[in-house]
Design a protein around this nucleic acid. Structure first.
Lengths: 204, 204
DNA sequence: AGCGGAAGCGAGCGATCGCTCGCATCCTAG
DNA sequence: CTAGGATGCGAGCGATCGCTCGCTTCCGCT
């Protein structure tokens, strides 16, 4: 046993230094994603992930100190992809346009891998506190908060709460649609837009 | 092994016939609830549930053919409680009043045991098809669909979809609030009402 | 009282899982 | 070429878990 304060063993970001190790890490994370969305939490074992990734368990544990860290890395990867899209969407000049574009980004993201997205949303709430994950979540909230203060959108009494509510509405509606098997982006975006603008008090 | 078509082993509803066995079943279900909301899916073992309930594993398996059936019974119990409250709320004469009362019922239900409610929502989507669970879910949707056709609420192009959207909005907002640690019912109900009426196209 | 079914028990089987560790292999620098 | 660090390997340990089964105890009946 090493010093429990400083130790924590090699975390993934502990720089895989050669090209092949980077490929290994990516393969492991993607294998985790595939297994999670195929069979859910049951059957999601480190042995299964390693096999699917074509590496050994030993290699897996070189980059992820425990199973949870693997899920954490997956959450961060997916959330960062979403944030990237959302940031691009938010750059539109008009506030309403930007907001709708962010909705489109969320719908697109969640509809691309519905089972995975829904499962990771849940894991994010369940997993023990993780700094990097919280940072990602906060980034999305901050982005929406910024949008809400654009002059052409109705001012909200409590911007951060409103931003959190909007994200909850968006996530809730998309998850439910995904469960129902909905696959068409357009009508879903329409309905989410109605809900969001309705919440804000802006006429459609 | 018995006939796989008809058998399925004693299901819970297979009439516990004496008073003490009813108490046993209730103790098991409540123990399952307590463990789930305390530690989540990890650590939720049949051994742990039995111990917490003060019975033996053997007794547990007399009433629940497998672990999942226990979770299923818990889902049905909780959902039926919610539906009962919602039905009472929906009996109000004015459509808008009834809708707001249903929202209050949902908020009250979910805020009473937030972790449990959120986890069961997720399990409900994850678990294999179960007729009784689906019946409960459909009942809630039907109830809201009925509300949406009251004359004083704006007519929707697709009532069942609108009902599903509303329930998704409500569930999403409440879950998010619960995660954030919100405990006050009143402001949350207010915000959910704004989102719901906004979606429907009715002025607040 | 005493019988028979209902209810309850809990040691333990077989399987799985998270994770370790000693070692082989690959790559880069000098 | 060679040394040494980086990377990869996988058998297997220890623990846990779902679930069974042979048994005892309880209770309503006649």
């Amino acid at each position: 046993m090493t010093d429990p304060l400083t130790a924590q063993r090699p975390r993934p970001r502990k720089r895989p230094q050669q090209a092949r190790s980077l490929a290994t890490v990516e393969a492991i994370v993607e294998a985790a994603a595939r297994i999670l969305e195929a069979v859910g939490h049951g059957g999601f074992s480190t042995n299964a992930v390693a096999e699917r990734a074509g590496v050994s368990v030993g290699s897996l544990y070189q980059y992820f100190p425990r199973k949870e860290a693997l899920v954490g890395a997956l959450i961060v990867r997916e959330k960062n992809r979403l944030i990237e899209d959302a940031r691009a969407a938010a750059s539109r000049p008009a506030g309403t346009d930007a907001l709708v574009a962010v909705i489109e980004a969320c719908v697109g993201h969640q509809l691309r891998r519905p089972a995975l997205a829904r499962l990771l949303d849940f894991e994010e709430a369940r997993l023990p506190f993780d700094a990097e994950i919280h940072r990602s979540a906060a980034a999305l909230n901050t982005l929406v908060s910024g949008l809400l203060e654009r002059p052409d959108l109705p001012r909200q009494p409590d911007t951060p709460t409103a931003a959190a509510d909007l994200l909850a509405i968006i996530k809730g509606m998309i998850d439910a649609a995904g469960e129902r098997g909905e696959t068409g982006e357009v009508p879903l975006v329409d309905r989410v837009r109605r809900a969001v603008l309705g919440y804000l008090g802006a006429g459609a």
